[in-house]
Deep mutational scan, measured.
Amino acid sequence: QRITLKDYAMRFGQTKTAKDLGVYQSAINKAIHAGRKIFLTINADGSVYAEEVKDGEVKPFPS
């Protein structure tokens, strides 16, 4: 399943989102408010992988 960072954070909370991605909650808040195009893939085992689309390139998040 693929979902935006904002939607994932709204569904699970910023604290869990940060923990799942290995970053601080403040980084999640800042990324959402900056309007960054970050998409999360939720794997069947429950693990989460995030990618950011920037300038036409897709890069892992966090980099």
Rank of each mutant, 00 (worst) to 15 (best):
Q1M: 13
Q1A: 11
Q1P: 11
Q1D: 13
R2K: 14
R2G: 08
R2Y: 10
R2P: 09
I3K: 03
I3N: 03
I3A: 06
I3W: 13
T4H: 09
T4D: 06
L5N: 00
L5C: 02
K6L: 13
K6I: 11
K6R: 12
K6T: 09
K6V: 13
D7R: 04
D7N: 05
D7F: 03
D7W: 05
D7K: 05
D7G: 04
Y8P: 01
A9G: 03
A9D: 03
A9Q: 08
A9Y: 12
A9N: 07
M10D: 15
M10A: 15
R11V: 10
R11A: 10
R11M: 15
R11L: 15
R11T: 11
F12Y: 14
F12G: 01
F12N: 07
F12Q: 04
F12I: 04
G13N: 02
G13W: 02
G13A: 01
G13L: 02
G13C: 03
Q14K: 10
Q14V: 15
Q14L: 15
T15E: 15
T15I: 13
T15Q: 15
K16V: 05
K16N: 05
K16Q: 10
K16D: 03
K16M: 04
K16W: 02
T17M: 03
T17D: 01
A18N: 01
A18P: 01
A18W: 03
K19F: 09
K19R: 13
K19T: 09
K19D: 08
K19G: 07
K19S: 11
D20Q: 09
D20Y: 04
D20T: 07
D20A: 09
L21K: 00
L21D: 00
L21E: 00
L21S: 02
G22Q: 06
G22W: 04
G22I: 03
G22C: 08
G22F: 05
G22A: 05
V23H: 04
V23N: 02
Y24F: 13
Y24D: 15
Y24A: 15
Y24H: 15
Y24C: 15
Y24N: 15
Y24I: 12
Q25K: 12
Q25Y: 10
Q25G: 10
Q25E: 15
Q25M: 09
S26C: 15
S26L: 07
S26W: 11
A27L: 15
A27I: 15
A27Q: 14
A27G: 06
I28N: 00
I28F: 02
I28A: 01
I28H: 00
I28P: 00
N29P: 07
N29Y: 12
N29W: 12
N29E: 15
N29I: 14
N29R: 13
K30I: 12
K30F: 08
K30T: 13
A31N: 02
A31D: 02
A31R: 01
I32V: 07
I32A: 02
H33K: 13
H33F: 10
H33P: 02
H33E: 15
H33N: 15
H33L: 14
A34T: 12
A34C: 11
A34Y: 07
G35R: 09
G35H: 10
G35D: 14
R36P: 02
R36G: 04
R36T: 06
R36E: 05
R36C: 07
R36W: 07
R36D: 06
K37Q: 13
K37R: 11
K37P: 12
K37G: 07
K37W: 06
K37C: 11
I38F: 01
I38R: 00
I38H: 00
I38N: 00
F39G: 01
F39S: 04
F39Q: 04
F39I: 08
F39H: 05
L40D: 00
L40C: 09
T41L: 08
I42Q: 06
I42C: 05
I42N: 03
N43T: 12
N43Q: 13
A44M: 11
A44W: 08
A44V: 12
D45G: 05
D45W: 05
D45K: 04
D45R: 03
D45L: 05
G46T: 04
G46A: 05
G46F: 06
G46R: 04
S47W: 06
S47Y: 06
S47N: 07
S47K: 15
S47Q: 08
V48R: 03
V48Y: 04
Y49R: 11
A50W: 03
A50Q: 01
E51Q: 07
E51A: 05
E52H: 03
E52Y: 04
E52M: 03
E52L: 03
E52G: 01
V53I: 14
V53D: 12
V53P: 02
K54D: 12
K54C: 14
K54F: 15
K54M: 12
D55P: 06
D55M: 08
D55E: 09
D55Q: 08
G56D: 09
G56W: 06
G56N: 10
G56T: 07
E57H: 12
E57P: 03
E57S: 12
E57A: 11
E57V: 15
E57M: 13
E57Y: 11
V58N: 08
V58F: 11
V58E: 05
K59L: 14
K59T: 13
K59I: 15
P60Y: 05
P60K: 09
P60G: 06
F61M: 03
F61H: 02
F61N: 02
F61E: 02
P62R: 03
P62T: 04
P62S: 04
S63I: 09
S63R: 12
S63G: 13
